[in-house]
Design a protein around this nucleic acid. Structure first.
Length: 253
DNA sequence: ATGGCGCATGGAATGCGA
């Protein structure tokens, strides 16, 4: 089973790239973030014509998450239960016997800001929810744009901002892995400076001035069967790319 | 130190992302 995540920064703009990528890579599941469109504008027909079913939770201009799958997703859940939030950042569904969660973690703007406090509160709510979900679903995968670079290997040495690399954010990431979730990417040898996001400005991609902030966390049952994980940089090289590249993992049957 | 780019809304200029 091939699982992937991609922050597309507008599904409307990126739809042709997403369809091409699905046709080339043929993942069983693709989690999307930053749809930036309302549900009534979700391109259902195009996705289904590509051989995928979709469940989604979108809003105008910002946020928005989806799960595309070759099998029909069931038991759809939107948001974090008990955490009131107008921002569409979480959708969960069962595909086969895997519980899949597509999540767009808050950016946080700047350490100490109001948005940073929201980021930490959101992370705490997510963690408490997942602790229960893991009891219900032993095969669980949390995929998405975490907006956290978990350790120093995950940020370019010249990254000067605190946001995405601060201790509270990294502690929150550790709390998630502390639930028994494994960072699929770190189950394998990886090249140095293997990032998933590069700023549009300053020729950041050409200079590889990036961060690894898109992740796939796997429950123990899935991690034991994980055979590969990597970043697919090809879409970042296209005209009008998303600023994020897809991350892909493979799970043996 | 700041802004750089891209996308959104709305129909110019501004907010936001990371």
């Amino acid at each position: 089973m091939k699982l992937a995540t991609w922050n597309v920064n507008s599904l409307k703009v990126r739809l042709p790239q997403v369809l091409d990528w699905l046709a080339t890579v043929r993942p069983d599941v693709l989690c999307l973030q930053e749809l930036k469109l309302e549900d009534r504008n979700f391109p259902i027909a195009e996705i289904e014509a590509a051989g995928y079913r979709a469940v989604f939770s979108g809003q105008k201009a910002y946020n928005g998450v989806a799960i595309l799958a070759r099998e029909t997703p069931t038991d759809i859940s939107i948001g974090i239960p008990g955490f009131a939030d107008e921002q569409r950042r979480v959708i969960a569904a069962t595909v086969g016997n895997v519980r899949v969660i597509s999540a767009y973690f808050p950016n946080g703007q700047a350490v100490g800001s109001e948005k940073f406090a929201y980021k930490l509160a959101w992370l705490e709510a997510l963690t408490h929810w997942l602790e229960e979900e893991l009891l219900r679903y032993p095969s669980l995968a949390l995929l998405g744009d975490y907006n956290i670079a978990p350790d120093e290997r995950d940020a370019h040495p010249d990254w000067k901002e605190e946001i995405h690399v601060s201790q509270p954010e990294r502690d929150a990431f550790r709390a998630l892995t502390g639930l028994g979730l494994s960072d699929a990417f770190r189950l394998f040898e990886q090249p140095e400076k293997n990032f998933s996001w590069w700023d549009y400005r300053m020729m950041a991609f050409r200079r590889n001035f990036g961060l690894r902030i898109d992740h796939i966390l796997l429950s123990a049952e899935l991690a034991a069967r994980c055979t590969a994980c990597g970043v697919d940089k090809a879409p970042r090289k296209l005209e009008r790319p998303s600023d994020h590249a897809p991350v892909v993992t493979e799970i043996a049957d």
